[in-house]
Amino acid sequence: MEAIYAHPKSLKPIQTKYCPGCGHGVIHRLIAEVIDELGVQEKSVLLNPVGCSIWADLYFDFDSVQVPHGRTPAGATGIKRMLPDHLVICYQGDGDLAAIGTGEAVHAANRGEKFTTIFVNNAIYGMTGGQMAPTTLVGQKATTAPFGRDPVDAGMGYPVKVLEMLATLEGTKYLARGAVNNVVNVRKTKQYIKKAFEAQLRGEGFTMVEILSQCPTNWGMDPVESNAWLESSMMPVFKLGVLKDELSVSANKEAGK
């Protein structure tokens, strides 16, 4: 008989604390599946960021390190430089990466640090209860943007497009944006993650996969509505696809076979 389902080895068989419809669970599973496929569970280290995914170390069955809010790329730099043959995953939310830790992210990318950032962009602060994120859309409501994000009169700025910003840096080698709102996008996102991890293990430069993810609780929607909102509102601003691929030919050949 052919096995059509198995729980990933790198993910503990327990229920997560994430809200119904939250994207973190799916993203965790994709990471765990890729790690299993690459056979690197014993050589993986995840940095779990401040935010809802601070719980990631409860679910992933491999080593983890938790640094202060936003310092995730700095911590990942220290770990990867000491363990160059390991898979180091810098898991970051939009606040961690694009607000408090912008400096760390930009400079790690610019140095071409050889770890992979998984950037979970849900356009809102989850754990602290729905505050405006750097990626919150114009007009989107948040507890700290009660009348909607207003870049002009209230001076709240515009959604930060992280990949587009990092693409100008020579140290970045692979930047792709996926989403987890439907099966097709989930599968594509998994391919991006796999390509980034393989590139990292080959010792190529900085790799990042941004993933548009749902936060039904703080968006004030049910899970089904939130899938639709992600597509209708987020995707026009944060375009899906591979934004930069300067990986070596061998990396691309392997991914294509």
Binding site: V65, P68, R71, G78, I79, H107
Partner: peptide, 10 residues
């Protein structure tokens, strides 16, 4: 800030 957190990672 980054320097001390790199130390933390290492």
């Amino acid at each position: 800030t980054s320097a001390i957190n790199m130390v933390f990672g290492a």
